[in-house]
Computed example of a mutant assay.
Amino acid sequence: MNKTVRLAGIAYESLVNGPGMRRVFFAQGCKHKCEGCFNPETHSFDGGEIMDMDKLIKDVLDNPMLKGVTFSGGDPIEQAHSFAYMAKAFKKANLNIWCYTGYTFEKLLELMKKNENIRMLLNNMDVLVDGRFEIMNRNEELKFKGSTNQRIIDVKKSLEYGNIIVIG
């Protein structure tokens, strides 16, 4: 397996991308290209930097201040194999894992039937913030999301109960 991931950047200690002190990995590459996107420089699949996932994992695990990891973007689903690999390692270390995606949870459930990497990523994440950013639904007072159409989903409970459990 190729143990690299293409990242647009890293926020080493963040308090705004999920609860507690977190490491945030910004995926490089996004098909959604939402109008008003907060990170348009992450859209190209050729930009960013190719990084060694094992080094990224070790660096997170070596920092006792971190309570969780957030995958943002770009769209981490476009590199599901890499983010699933990292999520599995972080979950094994009992870190809280959030993921932002322009895809809806319903679409990911459909895709995971054919894509084992998406299944593994979902099975190792705690919270998914789903849906495209919609500029007409933008609300800067929302916590952990940019527009009112986006949902903050408890992935574990949603998979367990077979329906979407929205939190927050």
Rank of each mutant, 00 (worst) to 15 (best):
M1N: 14
M1D: 10
M1V: 12
N2A: 09
V5E: 08
V5A: 13
V5N: 05
V5C: 09
L7V: 08
A8V: 11
A8L: 12
G9Q: 02
I10M: 01
E13S: 09
G18N: 03
P19Q: 08
G20S: 09
G20M: 10
M21G: 01
M21K: 07
R22L: 04
F25P: 00
K31A: 09
K31H: 04
H32D: 00
C34A: 01
G36P: 07
C37P: 02
C37G: 05
C37Q: 06
T42R: 08
S44H: 06
F45K: 12
G48A: 03
M51L: 13
D52S: 13
M53P: 12
K55W: 10
K55S: 11
L56D: 04
I57V: 13
L61F: 03
D62Q: 10
N63H: 10
P64I: 11
K67V: 12
G68F: 11
V69Q: 10
V69M: 12
T70I: 08
T70R: 07
F71T: 02
F71G: 08
S72Q: 11
G73W: 00
G74N: 12
P76A: 15
E78P: 15
S82K: 05
Y85N: 06
Y85F: 10
M86Q: 02
K88F: 13
K91V: 06
K91S: 12
K92V: 07
A93F: 05
N94D: 13
N94S: 11
L95G: 07
N96G: 01
I97D: 02
I97C: 03
I97S: 02
W98L: 04
C99M: 12
Y100V: 09
Y100H: 03
Y103Q: 09
T104Y: 01
T104R: 01
F105S: 05
L108A: 13
K114F: 14
N115R: 15
N115A: 05
M120P: 02
L121F: 14
N123L: 13
N123Q: 15
N124D: 12
M125Y: 15
M125P: 07
D126T: 12
D126N: 13
L128A: 15
V129P: 00
V129F: 00
D130W: 00
D130M: 06
N137F: 13
N137C: 12
R138D: 02
N139S: 10
E141I: 05
L142C: 04
G146M: 01
G146W: 00
T148C: 05
N149M: 04
N149W: 02
Q150I: 00
I152M: 04
D154M: 09
D154L: 08
D154C: 08
S158G: 07
L159W: 06
Y161G: 05
I164D: 09
I167D: 04
G168C: 02
